[in-house]
Computed example of a mutant assay.
Amino acid sequence: MTFSDDEIDRYARHLVLAEVGGPGQQALKRARIAIIGLGGVGGPAALYLAAAGVGTLVLIDDDTVAASNLQRQVLFQTPDIGQGKVAAGADHLAALNPHVDIRSVPVRLSRENAGEILAGCDVVIDGTDDFETRFTVNEACLDAGLPLVSGALGRWSGQVAVFRGRPCYRCLVPEAPPQAETCARVGVVGALAGVVGTLSALEAVKLVTGAGQPLVGRLMLYDGLAGTSRVVAVPPDPHCPSCSTRAWPE
């Protein structure tokens, strides 16, 4: 796989980076990454992955841009209000990097369509804001053997984890909390979305290039008010409703 002169110039800082270099940049160019939910987490992740030279980005979201999104969803601009998020987002990402193939999927991911939509992907980033969709994404990634980067935020805190096989997302969240807090109900500081979205993109880059140690089976917790973060292990749940009943290699 070769790079054009523009790509060599564009990705120069990656090409001289020991942990990426030419092989890593080629891996990024070959990669197909799905981003589910093009909001506070998915938008910044998409911007950095497009800038990084990921070959194909699959954008999955059935929502439209609202004025209240603009406080944290920096992929969009005021003229985008009322447009579909994947259509508006695809335009901005193509303007950022014309070498990236943007696939727009303006639907809500479901058990019925997940297999077809995620076919051929290498990594999935989940930036959705409801637990039922997160559970669906988790099942689809387990079915397809895909690594899942999960990012979430609310108020002043956020979290990022990577799941690849067991433990899975439902080892961390077995069931939807009865009174789950949403950004619409409790609020969220806008810049926090950039932190979590960027960390999600970074984990995807590490997974694709083989650089460093992705947060596989670990959860990073970020406290924006205190300016602190910590990483904790996510142990496999022997009673997990998603992964405990599957056969795993010894």
Score class of each variant (00 low, 15 high):
F3M: 15
D5F: 01
D6Q: 12
D6N: 13
E7A: 14
I8K: 14
D9F: 12
R10F: 14
A12P: 00
H14D: 11
H14W: 07
G22K: 01
G22A: 07
P23H: 02
G24I: 12
Q25V: 13
A34L: 06
A34H: 02
G37S: 02
L38E: 04
G39D: 00
V41P: 11
P44Y: 04
Y48W: 03
A50W: 06
A51D: 06
V54Y: 07
V58E: 07
D63R: 04
A67Q: 12
A67C: 03
S68M: 05
Q73A: 13
Q73T: 11
V74C: 02
F76S: 09
F76P: 06
Q77N: 00
I81C: 08
V86Y: 07
G89V: 05
D91Y: 06
H92F: 07
L93F: 10
A94C: 08
R108Y: 00
R108T: 06
S110W: 01
E112T: 13
A114T: 03
A114R: 02
V123L: 09
V123H: 04
G127T: 03
E132Q: 08
T133M: 05
R134I: 01
D143R: 11
L146D: 05
V149Q: 05
V149L: 06
A152E: 01
L153H: 01
L153N: 03
G154Q: 07
G154W: 00
W156P: 10
S157H: 14
S157T: 14
G158W: 11
G158T: 10
Q159L: 12
Q159N: 05
R166V: 15
R166E: 12
R166N: 14
P167R: 11
P167Y: 10
C168M: 10
C171K: 04
V173G: 00
P174Q: 10
E175I: 08
A176N: 09
P177C: 11
Q179D: 15
A180W: 06
A180E: 13
A184W: 00
R185E: 14
V188A: 09
V195C: 07
S200Y: 05
A201D: 11
E203Y: 06
E203G: 10
E203V: 09
K206H: 08
V208L: 14
T209L: 13
T209Q: 11
L215A: 11
V216F: 02
L219I: 05
M220R: 12
L225A: 13
S229W: 10
S244E: 02
S244Y: 02
T245F: 00
